[in-house]
Write a protein that binds this DNA or RNA. Structure first.
Ligand SMILES: NC(=O)c1ccc[n+]([C@@H]2O[C@H](COP(=O)([O-])OP(=O)(O)OC[C@H]3O[C@@H](n4cnc5c(N)ncnc54)[C@H](O)[C@@H]3O)[C@@H](O)[C@H]2O)c1
Ligand SMILES: NC(=O)c1ccc[n+]([C@@H]2O[C@H](COP(=O)([O-])OP(=O)(O)OC[C@H]3O[C@@H](n4cnc5c(N)ncnc54)[C@H](O)[C@@H]3O)[C@@H](O)[C@H]2O)c1
Lengths: 211, 211
DNA sequence: ATTTTTTTGTTAAAAATTTAACATTGTTAA
DNA sequence: TTAACAATGTTAAATTTTTAACAAAAAAAT
């Protein structure tokens, strides 16, 4: 690991990579900082600063080598041998996520789903087997799952999080609107779609009032 | 509008409200800053500071009046007469979102969905009618829709965003992994689930290396 | 050959955000 | 009654994040 990269830089590196992969597909071999910036709605300085932080140096007047940069970002943010991920709650959102991730990034592989509904247990969705919630602890350990994505109904969020922690999971991505608590050796990221929408609504309102 | 609230404060206000609504249900009439803080994984000082910014003052030693605070946050972030929202792309994610929002916050009402698939057009999902993408501009204007949530395949993101802008939309929440461009009088929020997951993975990796 | 342009890389400044410090004041308890 | 306590509200400091400024150097233009 190079050093303590700012959280925001990590997020942007992930986004840069996505943009770079698209560039690569379109046959581009080099890209300027201002081109990356334009795509991400940020400034070119910020891009250059982020790349400086990870120690990548481009070619003056030619920009950055797309392939090299993709590889370097991979070295920074990916784990050497991939990370196994589980989805807890195979409902609407869980299914949508599995569908979405299926075959996307091989580095982060959803290898299991868990649910409480007997109708779902034993089935496979987009190649991901669904296990019973009671087998969660053992399955997580057996399959060496490190990250859990929570998409259960909000009322079960807390108990599922506790169970995940007990199973030895190292990171939780909580899509439930209910905040949960985890010990500090477990990395927790919570995202609430309503907050995003309310934020958009607020700025829309503000803009219409100040125009 | 009180004043220029920091973006981060807006996000937290939305989250506070969610937590407060749950408190209200459980019969609590007052809440301390440190209780709110605990739920949101932040500090009590930050809560008090945010509330100071919106000019709410609690009762010393008794905390904040839950109901009053909910109402005040509503006055700050909600629009007086609600805002109409549309979902563009009634696939897995679009359906999940509609389901989720259905009957949640009356202030932000999903009043229409749009899709290109003839099988979906004309149907209703959880009470939300699905229109054809070709009717988007007229429908948005007719129903006074201000915000669009984009859940179309990434390849269509740019053209749909352009269309939304042309229709006079004021805010876009883009769940597509493809960044789009909008004029600066349109508020744009982009969220990428892969970035979130990669961020969690990074910190899991980092922690395991430095332990 | 020399000047201009364009782009990177880096240091410094600015802005935004969080945290700390602490004064204030009801409430409880001695 | 007075002292200790526990909470808020606010100013100030610290931290984090973004932006600006500018030096360096390769390429292009003159
Ligand atoms: N649908 C969305 O777009 C959306 C958006 C944001 C947040 N969310 C949140 O995500 C969560 C899931 O939403 P959804 O629309 O997919 O709901 P859903 O009801 O479709 O799915 C929930 C799934 O969890 C399973 N489940 C219930 N209790 C469980 C338990 N104890 N252990 C394991 N599995 C259990 C159910 O059987 C079901 O399959 C909710 O908390 C919701 O608030 C959903
Ligand atoms: N599913 C997820 O969990 C998830 C997560 C993050 C991001 N995303 C992104 O969200 C988007 C949708 O994902 P999904 O899983 O719902 O995909 P999906 O294929 O299930 O749904 C896409 C829908 O959009 C419709 N559509 C296609 N072209 C259109 C157009 N030009 N105008 C209007 N509608 C059109 C399709 O008919 C379909 O109903 C994708 O860009 C995906 O990358 C999905």
């Amino acid at each position: 690991m190079i050093k303590n990269l700012p959280h925001k830089t990590i997020e942007r590196l992930s986004q840069y990579r996505r943009a770079l992969l698209i560039c690569l597909d379109s046959g581009k071999t080099h890209i300027y900082s201002h081109e990356i910036a334009r795509i991400q709605h940020i400034t070119a300085v910020q891009v250059r600063r982020d790349l400086m932080l990870i120690g990548y140096t481009g070619t003056l007047r030619k920009g950055y080598n797309v392939k090299e940069l993709i590889d370097l970002i991979g070295q920074i943010i990916d784990s050497d041998d991939g990370i196994h991920v589980a989805i807890i709650g195979m409902g609407n959102l869980g299914r949508a996520l599995i569908n979405y991730f299926a075959g996307k990034r091989s580095q982060l592989r959803i290898v299991a789903g868990f649910d409480i509904n007997p109708d779902k247990i034993g089935n496979t969705m987009s190649g991901v087997p669904c296990f019973g919630i009671d087998d969660m602890e053992s399955t997580i350990q057996k399959l060496d799952i490190r990250i859990g994505i929570m998409t259960v109904p909000a009322d079960f969020a807390v108990e599922v999080a506790d169970k995940l922690v007990k199973s030895g999971i190292k990171g939780i991505l909580n899509y439930t609107p209910k905040p949960v608590n985890v010990p500090k050796d477990v990395y927790l990221e919570e995202y609430d779609m309503i907050t995003s929408l309310e934020k958009v609504a607020f700025f829309v309102k503000m803009h219409s009032e100040t125009e």
